[in-house]
Simulated assay, not measured.
Amino acid sequence: MTPAQISHVQSSFASVAPISDQAATLFYGRLFEIAPEVKPLFKGDMREQGAKLMKTLAMVVGGLNRLETILPAVEALAIRHVAYGVEDRHYDAVGSALLWTLEQGLGDAFTPETREAWSIAYTTLADAMISASAKVSA
């Protein structure tokens, strides 16, 4: 990622963070709408799950300019997700739901450049997670 793309992701996330509860609710609503097969994978309190999501996003977004420092945590997360039943194909739906949520939360501030930056960031991290999960599944 370029420094400008990292800046787009970090500044846009800073705008979403104050509405993190709403953003998490939007995200999971959208995810379950476009990929209803993942809903049974979530067994706990969804407010708590939403808080975990936003905390994880904050950690990842904050570490984008030091990707090598966050990759071990991202890979560990992927390995835990395998145990929950997450499959590679679910990552596309998560990415779609994330971009949709950001668009809803940011409105006009979700520019094409911001969308592209988030797409690159998500793809980079999802690819790392899929790679890590393949090691467990093999």
Rank of each mutant, 00 (worst) to 15 (best):
M1N: 07
I6M: 10
I6T: 06
H8M: 12
H8S: 13
V9R: 01
V9N: 02
Q10P: 07
S11D: 13
F13K: 01
S15P: 01
S15D: 09
Q22M: 10
A24F: 05
T25C: 08
L31S: 05
F32R: 02
I34G: 04
I34F: 05
E37M: 04
V38A: 06
V38K: 00
K39V: 10
K39Y: 04
F42T: 01
M46E: 02
M46A: 03
T56G: 07
V60H: 00
L64W: 01
L64Y: 03
E68N: 11
T69I: 10
V74R: 01
E75C: 14
A76Y: 14
L77R: 04
L77T: 06
A78P: 01
I79W: 01
A83H: 09
Y84R: 15
V86N: 06
Y91K: 10
V94M: 08
S96K: 14
L98C: 09
L99D: 06
L99W: 07
W100R: 07
T101V: 07
G107H: 08
D108T: 14
E113C: 12
E113Y: 13
T114D: 06
A117H: 00
A117K: 01
I120H: 13
Y122V: 02
T123W: 08
T123M: 11
T124Y: 11
A126P: 00
A126Q: 01
D127G: 12
A128N: 14
M129Y: 07
M129T: 02
V136D: 11
